[in-house]
Design a protein around this nucleic acid. Sequence first.
DNA 1: GGCCGTTGTGCAACTAGTTGCACAATCGGT
DNA 2: ACCGATTGTGCAACTAGTTGCACAACGGCC
Lengths: 182, 182
Amino acid sequence: MSLPHAILTALLEKPSSGLELTRRFDKSIGYFWSATHQQIYRELGRLEGEGLIRALPTEQPARGQKKSYEVLPAGRAELARWTAASQDPKPARDALLLRLRAAAVVGTEGIAADLRHHLALHQRQLAEYQEIEERDFGFGTDSAQARLHHLVLRAGIDLETFWIQWLTHALGEFEQLPAESG
Amino acid sequence: MSLPHAILTALLEKPSSGLELTRRFDKSIGYFWSATHQQIYRELGRLEGEGLIRALPTEQPARGQKKSYEVLPAGRAELARWTAASQDPKPARDALLLRLRAAAVVGTEGIAADLRHHLALHQRQLAEYQEIEERDFGFGTDSAQARLHHLVLRAGIDLETFWIQWLTHALGEFEQLPAESG
DNA sequence: GGCCGTTGTGCAACTAGTTGCACAATCGGT
DNA sequence: ACCGATTGTGCAACTAGTTGCACAACGGCC
């Protein structure tokens, strides 16, 4: 239920074509709501059909031509409605923790390597977030918008930090484990 | 791709009927891989069809009768295979962070109340985890199995702690924000 | 002994996200 | 002028998870 709202938010921040949206998702909104270009195009079509957004006028609206969208008043209203409405959190799903649980029964083979892999990914992500923080929120950010964006970024940073700590701890535990435990 | 493996794990820990599985998911494996009873029944049917589990023999196998399943060797092998194989982490999806981002554009109305709601839920969850930790891992847990289970629980505890801290911080920020920021 | 809540199993339809591919336009080299 | 890589848009089929409902059996209760 959230992809359309992610797109509306992105389009309000800046009207864009499908590909531009895809790129921006990859390095901003996508950090906490990822989407592939196929999803985005499909959703743009739907939103246009519902009258929430519209394609900006262009000379040659043909296949393979850039087509930009902007949010219409109805779209903004819908986003405001959705944002204000309370939502229950989605139930958690974490395959890595599930695998650890499975490993307790069928053996830990292969897990340690993957923990290291995850650790590397989280370290990379954290570095990326920290770069953004330095670049965009270096000092005295004061507008309400900037504060909210910073808040979201903080969540990302702290979350990555948590994972890095936990994975490091987990790898330590693994070294003390007998070679096979299934 | 993980629900069948979650079920295999649970069944290896203890053969169970659909309802028993549902209950155990609610207070153990479901903490990081939730599933409804409908999903579980459907998946049990599939797993049985694939020869990975089988129904324990019973006198009256009729509707409304308890039917327990156990894992067959093929099922254990499949679980071992899945556990050992490396997997890429799923892209993140967090509606609350998305809403904050949307709020930066269309206004923060309604958000603070929901942050408080989430905070309460996470506090409750943390308390539950801590209770389990005291009950099951009070002191000197040494078997490899227990250590792995504890490790997973630790992840849960630290994750809830992170959310509680972040939400508390976020609520603090909100108090300093102008009443309307869209 | 009929009613009702609980336990237990299950199907069908729907929604959301993923994967795999198709195809047009543009640009740079040759 | 042609060719292939890149940019940009999009459909179709599939997989996973959710929602809503149906229905049988059991256990008490009045």
